[in-house]
């Protein structure tokens, strides 16, 4: 019963995060919403494991937490440098001044 209520609460939270993801005016809202949804995935898998009486799902939930973390780092790196692979400084200046985005997603 307790896990059922937790599942319902998680679904409500997911719906709120998805609403922010669809509506979110700025890109940062969307990054944060995607990251929060990943966290909800982790929690949902954990709760589902106890709900289905298979608590070993908890290990898998930990792996999802790792993926979520690395994915968010990659997205934020794209924000900062506007490239994923090579971020060494360009000859004419620092890469930080080249690729900065303002919150509308346009390079300043």
């Amino acid at each position: 019963m307790m896990f059922l209520i937790a599942t319902i609460a998680l679904f409500v939270g997911m719906c709120l995060v998805l609403a922010r993801l669809y509506a979110g005016p700025s890109l940062y809202d969307r990054v944060l919403a995607a990251n929060a949804f990943g966290t909800f995935t982790v929690m949902f898998i954990g709760v589902l494991g106890f709900l289905m009486e298979r608590p070993e799902f908890l290990d898998i939930a930990l792996l999802y937490a790792l993926i979520n973390f690395v994915g968010t780092i990659a997205v934020l790196k794209y924000f900062r440098y506007r490239a994923i692979g090579d971020t060494s400084p360009t000859p004419e200046g620092e890469p930080t001044s080249v690729g900065k985005l303002n919150d509308r997603g346009v390079r300043s």
Binding site: T41, I67, V70, V75, Y78, G85
Partner: peptide, 17 residues
């Protein structure tokens, strides 16, 4: 999750760059 949410996101961002 690893391919769809992890690698694909990174590759699509790289393409967008």
């Amino acid at each position: 999750a690893a391919v769809g949410a992890g690698i694909s996101t990174v590759l699509m961002l790289g393409t967008m760059a």
